[in-house]
């Protein structure tokens, strides 16, 4: 959907799945992310250093994967939503150039602090289906009745 539109609480049901999104993190993107986070850790851009650490190539920044999942949720909820809570854990490594797929589903619809809220499970997996980054999100959504 268009990110500028809102998703309404009434239009969401438990078990609803988010459309999968496949991305590939390139070394160019990793460079830009290291720059904005002012992160000089060599594991993210120095291939020789990565080899010395036993990796076949440079390692995708864990928080970049988290940011992608967060954006995936924000795009889903649209302009009227608010990301209240977000948790992820970097369980498996992602390497530059690997194709990564983001997936998710609605697990709970309820009221939190007097506002309509939805819990989501989202995750990132690699091309062979290994779970790399499991995450959970709680978002506030606008309601048609109050708007």
């Amino acid at each position: 959907m268009n990110e500028a539109q809102s998703r309404y609480f009434e239009d969401v049901c438990e078990g609803m799945e988010l459309a999968p999104l496949t991305k590939t993190v390139t070394t160019t993107q990793m460079f830009l992310y290291s720059a904005i986070t002012r992160n000089p850790h060599r594991i993210h851009y120095d291939e020789k250093f990565a080899h010395s650490e036993g990796l076949p190539t440079v390692l995708v920044q864990g928080p970049l994967q988290g940011a992608q999942l967060s954006a995936y949720v924000s795009d889903w909820m649209g302009a009227g939503g608010f990301l209240k809570k977000f948790t992820y854990s970097n369980r498996g490594m992602a390497l530059a150039g690997q194709s990564l797929t983001l997936r998710g589903k609605v697990v709970k619809k309820y009221e939190l602090e007097g506002r309509p809220a939805v819990d989501l499970e989202v995750w990132e997996e690699n091309a062979t289906g290994d779970l790399l980054v499991p995450a959970t999100a709680t978002v506030f959504l606008p309601s048609r009745s109050t708007n």
């Binding site: 864990g62 928080p63 988290g66 990301l83 209240k84 809570k85 948790t87 992820y88 854990s89 970097n90």
Partner: peptide, 9 residues
């Protein structure tokens, strides 16, 4: 190593 993150806004 970066292990994970949780946040509340």
């Amino acid at each position: 190593l970066f292990g994970g993150y949780q946040v509340e806004y």
